[in-house]
Amino acid sequence: MKYEEIHELLDRYWEGETTLEEERRIKTYFSAGPIDERLQSVAPMFQALREERAVQLTTKAKAAPMRPQIYQWAVAASTALLLAAGWWMLREGKNTTTPLVEQTPVEQPQHLNHPSVNSPQEVIAQAEETTPKPAAPRKKSQPRRNKPTQEPEIDAETAQAMAEIKAALALVSSKLDKGRNQAVKGATYLEAMDKVPKRKEG
């Protein structure tokens, strides 16, 4: 750039009449060199601007101010999943076991003193009082401590109730696994995002 041209631009710069593009041309002139002898006196001005622009935030902790909040959300989501799973378990328990009891033919009326049953817990409690039929595969692994003299067997209703509970717990477990996998994915993403700005700064 010729001296006259840059001189004219500078005059307008001091008056505050230059465009951003013209100001960039002035800065480029003073950073690229060589600088005309007559303009050396104003060179420090544009070097100062250039140096100030190069100042950067270096604290790496600034890179992730919202990470704790992500984890808060993860915790909240996990809790919600647990609650939902618990609610589902209770609901399923009521829906399946109660009709089951009502439909069961009374084969041994001497054991069924209660005409109606309201909850899964009562079903299990009642089933434990009855003389069970050989139906459950897990009967031998769970001996009854409070009734050592009786045969440790579980009837079909109890087995079914237990199967329901097992299914519900399996669902809770699967939900927890899913939540954990999501959290791992999130953590991996956060780590990756942490590395991106570092590379740029380096």
Binding site: A32, G33, A43, R50, E51, A54, V55
Partner: peptide
Amino acid sequence: EGVAERSS
């Protein structure tokens, strides 16, 4: 701080 290298 952060004095950049000069190109002159």
